[in-house]
């Protein structure tokens, strides 16, 4: 007697045979497959943060990989685990991506110990992005606090590369102390070459610090805004973007013209593990980039 049920082999589905592409999120694919990627450079930024340049090994995969500013990847270090990291490089850069990683847990700890040439896995890109297209023809406020400059750097570079599309561009950055400033070797370039108003502030100065001391909102007060022709991107800890957004709102910028990036624990990046839920919204699918109205409307977000 022939058997009653023919086994269904999912790997024979035509879509499973197609090259892996996480931008096609509705397609069936090996969701736990990774892009094997080589660490081509490690650039120390501070005691706690390093910038990793990663190149996808397979040429065709590398060519196909594309992302938008604000999106993140899952970095997998086999044997150690997987973590979500925002991409810090420009989306127009095809050769490699840059990830700014703070030493905080097991996986980031081991990444800080590893060396150039090591191969790790990448999945992604995942999540929503900053709507740079929609911001064209407007004034742009790019505001970061602390490690927030890591996710903000992608839109910064994107805006710089298309500088003529925008009116005034302000970058405001604040950290607790001067030795915590990220990417300080690039400020000069952003400020001078790209005609951008860059202001940096710290909460506590030291002997060498000659810049302003205070909170990020102090920098904001000095900027004259045209609220209805301005877009703002704010990256940083919740307590910081809450104050910044409240200030901008008082200045008259509509809530749907302000964008923030949230972070949560994540295990999948694909709306399955529920670890990143804010209330019941998935940070990985509906975020990490949210407009401020959505954040206000989400319980538990701030």
């Amino acid at each position: 007697m022939t058997s009653l049920f023919r086994p269904y082999y999912i790997i024979q589905e035509s879509e499973m045979a197609q090259p892996l592409d996480y931008n096609r999120r509705s397609r069936l694919k090996h969701v736990d497959q990774v892009f094997r990627s080589e660490i081509i450079n490690i650039i120390p930024l501070t005691d706690m943060e390093k910038l990793f340049q990663l190149r996808i090994l397979d040429g065709a995969e590398r060519e196909r990989f594309s992302f938008l500013p604000g999106q993140f990847v899952m970095v997998e270090v086999p044997g150690y685990g997987e973590i979500p990291i925002s991409i810090s490089s420009s989306p127009s850069h095809k050769g490699y991506i840059e990830l700014c990683i703070r030493r905080a847990g097991v996986v980031t700890g081991i990444l800080h110990k590893t060396r150039r040439g090591a191969v790790v896995g990448l999945r992604g890109p995942f999540g929503t992005h900053f709507p740079i297209e929609r911001m064209r023809g407007n004034h742009i406020l790019l505001i970061a606090g602390g490690l927030g400059l890591a996710p903000l750097r992608a839109p910064i570079l994107n805006v710089i590369e298309n500088r003529t599309d925008f009116h005034d561009v302000h970058i405001l950055y604040g950290t607790r102390q001067p030795d915590m400033l990220l990417f300080n070797y690039q400020y000069e370039e952003w400020n001078r070459i790209s005609d951008i108003n860059l202001k940096v502030i710290v909460e506590q100065g030291d002997e060498s610090w000659t810049g302003p001391v205070g909170l990020i909102t102090d920098l904001l007060k000095k900027i004259r805004l045209e609220p209805l022709e301005t877009y703002a991107i704010i990256c940083g800890p919740p307590v910081m973007f809450k104050f910044v957004c409240a200030h901008l709102q008082r200045e008259g910028i509509p809530m749907d013209r302000m964008f923030v990036s949230l972070e949560r624990r994540m295990h999948c990046g694909m709306g399955k593990c529920c670890r990143c839920n804010i209330g019941s919204t998935y940070t990985c699918l509906s975020g990490p980039v949210f407009d401020y109205w959505t954040v206000m409307n989400l319980k538990e977000a701030i």
């Binding site: 270090v77 086999p78 044997g79 081991i110 110990k113 590893t114 060396r115 040439g117 090591a118 191969v119």
Partner: peptide
Amino acid sequence: MKYLGIEP
């Protein structure tokens, strides 16, 4: 691990 250049 070895692939990361870390010796046991």
